[in-house]
Write a protein that binds this DNA or RNA. Sequence first.
DNA 1: TATTGTTATACTCTATAACTATA
DNA 2: TATAGTTATAGAGTATAACAATA
Lengths: 165, 165
Amino acid sequence: MAARRQYEELARQLSAIGVIKRSLARTLPPECPAGSAAVLRLLDQHGAMRMSRLAELLAVDMSVTSRHVAHVAERGWIARTRDPDDKRSRILALTPEGGDKLAELSDRYLRTLEGCLEDWPDEEVERLCSLLARLRESFGDCRTATVRGPHPAQHSPQPATHTPA
Amino acid sequence: MAARRQYEELARQLSAIGVIKRSLARTLPPECPAGSAAVLRLLDQHGAMRMSRLAELLAVDMSVTSRHVAHVAERGWIARTRDPDDKRSRILALTPEGGDKLAELSDRYLRTLEGCLEDWPDEEVERLCSLLARLRESFGDCRTATVRGPHPAQHSPQPATHTPA
DNA sequence: TATTGTTATACTCTATAACTATA
DNA sequence: TATAGTTATAGAGTATAACAATA
């Protein structure tokens, strides 16, 4: 259990990560913003899946997922087919064009990352990854146990417990 | 220099941090969203300063800073006074009311963080903080050296080199 | 009735560009 | 002419709620 001072520092660091994400997002072409890229990446990594599963991996609401998916589907980067076993569901799969797009994106994105972190030793990158993964786990686990405090607007029992990517 | 696989993993982790930030942001009262809270926090931490300095610490454009500042100023949480030495500038300072508000926010925010990370040893929190700080440094340093790639819409020479909080 | 997904609406955060006022 | 800051506008991302189709 760390000191409050450390949590303050962590809060500062977390709130400042935005600048990095925006920096990386700027490497993406205008027709494929970050949300769309994430959809392509997850479908490539995990294979075909349904909306609900994708929403879980993205860790956002399904309504948001639906919009991202519509965007990439309109451009032919993914295919949506009805699930024969449950006609409410749609199965999402990366198309060859989507695969090409993803390769192109990843190349630019990862080269930028490499460029910025070229002087980082392997182990540091590894360590950062695993600490971030663990951070997400810790947050996922305590999702229901939100601090109840003095101010009223509290959405008490949190919705579904996402367990993202 | 790490392997591409590691950068892919880091990219995944970075893109998934959003869920944590949103989780923490939900602890804030509606009248003081994250942007406003960040302004209060930085003025408390660094003392009075001008807009341009605050924009640098927030690592966002000054136009964005201006709006956040207007929001907290309207509520009496900060005071804006003209700089007598340069009447274009305005000096921003936390008011007592702003200090109270910040204390209230921080309490909720940090208790949530503590709750989620209660099983983390000190050193892990420390390590995560310093890796994140270093990540921001690495990105700040390579800000001008963006990868030039196949797609045209490249805002070549990046704007000012922010060196945030 | 419950679940899967879509759409409408609203809000936050951000950047670019045009503008005002000082320097 | 250049700089500090503001405002107008536009775009991305998100959530909530109402809805349609299916289970």
